[in-house]
Computed example of a mutant assay.
Amino acid sequence: MQLLSWLHRWTGGIVGILLAVIGLSGTVLLWEESWIMLPGADQPVVADPVALGEAVAAARKAGPELSRITFASEEIGLHQAIYADGSGAYLNQDGVLVERWASRWDRPELWLFDLHHYLLMGEAGKSITGILGFLLLGFCITGLLLWWRTRKTYRFRIWPARFTRSAIVRHHRDLGAVASPLLILVAFTGAMMVFPTISAWLLYPMTEEQIAPPLPENLGRPDEQTNWPLVMARAQAAFPTAVPRRLMMPAAEGAPLALRLRQDFEWTPNGRTYVWIDTRSAHVVAEQDPATSDMASSLTEKYYPVHAAKVGGIAWRLVMSFAGLSLAMLGLFASWSFWAGQARAPYRQGPRTGSAAAV
């Protein structure tokens, strides 16, 4: 137990600040629709294919080389357009430009997303957040084992009783015991999203062979002649009851464009139903229906909506907010108390004198 305690304290002292940053940024992102106060953000969703097609055409005119457009949802009633140069725009559901930005630093929800997922470090930062997820799993398990010895002194506190090292340690121990079940869920879903290979290995017994639909490679690129309302109408006809969520321009020359839709049974906000379209003829060239996927894919699809509280309504969002704020406090106070204790340690121990020193 002494070695376990030493590992828990030292590792937490080193990475506690990073965990606090991830916890706090994630909590703020849970409520982003409440603080994105742009005109039209609270507009009711209109899923008419003609209106969506006109919005795509407007988004293409608003910036250079549209990369993708995420359509308005019940959370945010604005279309979000992202362009190849990293800039972006919000348009209302009438296709009118509401906000334009040159980089992610111009919009708080964008750089907060990058901070939470990538620590502002790109793919390397994404790997670090995944590793932090596994470390958080370890902290929760070891913390519960260490707490069990002192469970009779348990007293739940949202905030430390005093800002002394001993009071902060007790607060860390007891808050961690309450938050650990939620933090285990947060850590696991986050790590599995970062490292899908590990997820695939864990879910291998539930995996069935999936054949990706063949896609043509000699199609024309979208241009000024593209009939976007017709494209959206024909794509919607492939899954009449699904809601169009994100249109992605061709990733390579000759490739079709892709539309993501969300069916009723899907938890992921943007869905995993795909329709690929030839913009020249506005014909559907391929489809992918998650209703025919295996159990492993069905479980994988739920990582993000559970992690980001995109399901469960306001109740689950409040629960996950508690988890995020708890992680922020646990990480921040753990780092502060650990390094403050290390700084004072030499002075507390001090040199021994007299007969005691001679023993």
Rank of each mutant, 00 (worst) to 15 (best):
32 E>H: 15
98 V>Y: 08
112 L>G: 03
141 I>N: 02
150 T>F: 12
222 P>C: 11
333 F>P: 00
188 F>S: 09
185 L>E: 00
24 L>E: 09
286 A>T: 07
35 W>F: 13
225 Q>R: 14
69 I>K: 06
217 E>M: 13
211 I>H: 14
259 L>V: 00
343 A>E: 00
312 G>A: 06
204 Y>W: 11
330 L>G: 00
233 A>L: 15
272 R>D: 01
92 N>W: 07
95 G>Q: 08
341 G>M: 02
359 V>K: 14
357 A>L: 12
12 G>E: 13
171 H>I: 04
40 G>N: 04
318 L>C: 04
132 L>E: 10
187 A>S: 12
311 V>K: 13
134 F>S: 03
354 G>D: 11
93 Q>F: 09
356 A>E: 14
290 P>F: 08
101 W>L: 10
34 S>N: 14
88 G>S: 08
251 A>S: 07
312 G>I: 11
226 T>F: 08
359 V>H: 09
282 A>Y: 01
204 Y>C: 00
154 Y>N: 10
291 A>F: 10
278 D>S: 03
91 L>Q: 02
273 T>C: 04
351 P>W: 14
50 V>R: 15
292 T>S: 11
173 R>V: 05
286 A>G: 12
133 G>N: 11
124 A>Y: 15
219 L>Y: 10
159 W>E: 00
157 R>G: 03
254 G>N: 01
290 P>L: 09
198 I>H: 13
348 R>K: 15
79 H>Y: 14
323 A>E: 01
169 V>E: 11
67 S>G: 07
43 Q>W: 12
72 A>G: 00
41 A>H: 12
52 L>E: 07
313 G>D: 03
19 L>D: 01
271 G>P: 02
296 A>K: 06
211 I>A: 14
180 S>M: 05
10 W>P: 13
93 Q>E: 08
307 H>W: 11
326 S>L: 02
181 P>S: 03
139 F>R: 08
30 L>K: 12
151 R>G: 01
197 T>A: 15
299 L>T: 12
295 M>W: 14
222 P>V: 02
300 T>F: 09
95 G>I: 07
147 W>F: 10
22 I>W: 11
333 F>G: 11
236 Q>D: 07
348 R>Q: 12
263 Q>N: 05
39 P>Q: 08
19 L>M: 10
298 S>Y: 13
313 G>P: 08
133 G>Y: 14
337 S>A: 13
111 W>E: 06
222 P>I: 02
254 G>H: 02
213 P>W: 04
112 L>D: 01
289 D>Y: 11
219 L>D: 12
101 W>Y: 15
334 A>K: 01
117 H>C: 07
176 G>T: 05
213 P>L: 06
255 A>R: 03
272 R>Q: 05
26 G>F: 03
266 E>L: 06
202 L>E: 01
171 H>P: 00
108 P>V: 11
206 M>Q: 09
153 T>N: 14
54 E>V: 03
205 P>C: 00
131 I>R: 15
46 V>L: 13
273 T>H: 02
1 M>I: 04
299 L>E: 05
162 R>E: 08
333 F>L: 15
131 I>L: 15
259 L>R: 10
30 L>C: 07
19 L>R: 01
112 L>F: 08
24 L>T: 03
83 Y>D: 04
212 A>I: 01
209 E>V: 05
200 A>T: 03
24 L>W: 09
